[in-house]
């Protein structure tokens, strides 16, 4: 099974039809609320809500979704543990050397774990049900993102596979030639320098050629333009907004 199959849904649910710009704005708003909120019960409800969205409406098979969820579950523990062991607090439950578990640090740790899981699930729902290119087209048309930003992003994203190839080619070349690095911080600098220098020199030249080619084809900053993929607001966007808002309110009142 190749990587492309891994990210192909079993069936395309209604979430795929929601305007990506609308989806992005609503998810980002929800993300901001969770980010600044300090109440662990509410965060837990949001986490459950985002997990439900993922498992019910993403259109992927259960086995695949469980596989995607493994890193998220690990992140709950890895973020919670440091805070539980070293967080500040008054009501001490258990202490051993510099490790101190208190009531406050325990709940703070849970809060952190639930937050990172909420972000993980929300991000996954968004990524699995939206195509990057359509997101940029919708951002340009519905949210008036200037075309120069959107097209620069799309062009640069297309070049990512080339960048990865170049990095791997260099890594192999170092191995073949037996390049060795110093120990410690100096070694880190040598590594960064050897990898970054050619990658950036190449990428800058490539970006420059690309920009000149686009301008030669009459791509103009600030000019009125038409779009290859027209995107609009649809009734389903309203349904999605209502669902998300009512679920969030539910999460709030249940906490």
């Amino acid at each position: 099974m190749n990587l492309f199959d891994l990210f192909t849904p079993h069936k395309k649910t209604w979430l795929y039809k929601v305007n990506p710009a609308v989806k992005f704005v609503l998810f980002f708003a929800l993300f901001m609320i969770v980010f600044f909120n300090q109440h662990y019960q509410f965060t837990m409800n949001i986490m459950i809500m985002s997990a439900l969205l993922l498992f019910l409406f993403s259109g992927y098979r259960l086995k695949r979704l469980l596989l995607f969820s493994i890193p998220i579950v690990i992140s709950i523990f890895s973020t919670a543990v440091t805070m539980i062991l070293f967080g500040k607090g008054e009501t001490i439950w258990w202490q051993w050397g510099i490790i101190k578990i208190s009531e406050e640090s325990f709940y703070k740790g849970l809060l952190l774990g639930f937050k990172s899981a909420s972000f993980g699930f929300l991000g996954l729902v968004f990524l699995l049900t939206s195509r990057p290119v359509m997101l940029f087209y919708a951002l340009m048309q519905q949210l008036k993102l200037p075309a120069k930003f959107a097209y620069s992003f799309m062009a640069a994203l297309r070049l990512v596979p080339i960048i990865i190839d170049e990095l791997q080619a260099r890594s192999n070349a170092f191995k073949v030639r037996g390049v060795t690095f110093s120990k410690g911080i100096k070694g880190i600098f040598e590594r960064l320098r050897l990898y970054m220098l050619p990658i950036f020199a190449q990428s800058i030249r490539r970006a420059q050629r690309l920009a000149i080619a686009m301008e030669a084809k009459r791509f103009q900053i600030g000019a009125d333009r038409t779009y290859y993929y027209p995107t609009t607001y649809q009734p389903i966007d309203g349904v999605f907004a209502l669902l998300l808002i009512s679920l969030s309110l539910g999460a709030y009142f249940l906490s």
């Binding site: 992003f153 640069a156 994203l157 070049l159 990512v160 960048i163 990095l167 950036f200 800058i204 920009a211």
Partner: peptide, 21 residues
């Protein structure tokens, strides 16, 4: 200019890839 913008975004994206590694 547009060239500068594209190069800036390119530099950011290359960093994104390096940061992944």
């Amino acid at each position: 200019r547009f060239t500068d913008l594209l190069i800036t975004i390119m530099v950011g994206i290359v960093f994104g890839v390096i940061m992944k590694f």
